[in-house]
């Protein structure tokens, strides 16, 4: 079945295989560089996220692609849609900011360390949920800047479904990676 491929493999020789491996590695490396560079520019750890739940319907559905930024000197506003990650929770959540409380002089709020001017307390809620997110905060009363991954700026429907499919069926991911790797090795140009 693979005799033809094996034949070309022998004909091209070891150096060619090495070259293809190098090509493959450079493709992966440049992809990673673009991702990390985008993260630096937008100041978030993940500048592009995929919506995984229906809690923001009808604004965002499962599989929608969101573009985030997180400028360090810009305060969050009510109505902004933020992506946040609570320590201890593994999945980041995309929800809308419903309350902001901007501290302008040092203040002690029960359950929190002394808050300095410029700090902000936030409360979020999913458009499709009836109540706010306090139950999701794992014991916290408020969100703060350190929990926020980014603010949603732009939106592209459906595209993220590929990653959802890969998460739901891991075999698909390995099959795709395997096929791509094999093609990169065998390809003749």
């Amino acid at each position: 079945m693979f005799t033809e491929e094996l034949k070309t493999f022998r004909r091209l020789g070891f150096r060619h295989v090495l070259l293809q491996v190098l090509n493959f590695a450079s493709v992966i490396a440049s992809g990673l560089m673009i991702w990390k560079g985008l993260g630096l520019v937008t100041n978030t750890e993940s500048p592009i996220v995929v919506v995984l739940s229906g809690s923001m319907e009808p604004a965002f559905y499962r599989g929608d692609l969101l573009f985030l930024t997180n400028p360090p000197h810009e305060r969050y506003h009510t109505g902004d849609i933020t992506v946040y990650r609570i320590p201890g929770a593994d999945i980041p959540i995309v929800h809308r900011v419903m309350e902001t409380h901007d501290v302008s002089s040092p203040i002690k709020i029960s359950g929190l360390a002394l808050k300095q001017p410029g700090e902000q307390l936030l409360l979020t809620k999913g458009d499709n949920n009836h109540i706010d997110d306090i139950d999701l905060y794992q014991g916290l009363d408020w969100l703060e800047r350190k929990h926020i991954v980014g603010k949603v700026r732009g939106f592209l429907p459906y595209v993220g479904y590929v990653t959802i499919a890969m998460n739901d069926f891991p075999q698909l991911k390995y099959a795709l990676l395997g096929v791509l790797g094999l093609l990169a090795l065998i390809q003749r140009e």
């Binding site: 009808p58 604004a59 009510t78 109505g79 309350e99 501290v103 302008s104 203040i107």
Partner: peptide, 23 residues
Amino acid sequence: TKQLFVSLEAEYENIKGVNNTIV
């Protein structure tokens, strides 16, 4: 335009100097 999120928000500053905005 897919949808609008329309909100009425209260904005006020309290005695401790906290600026609040609440939907």
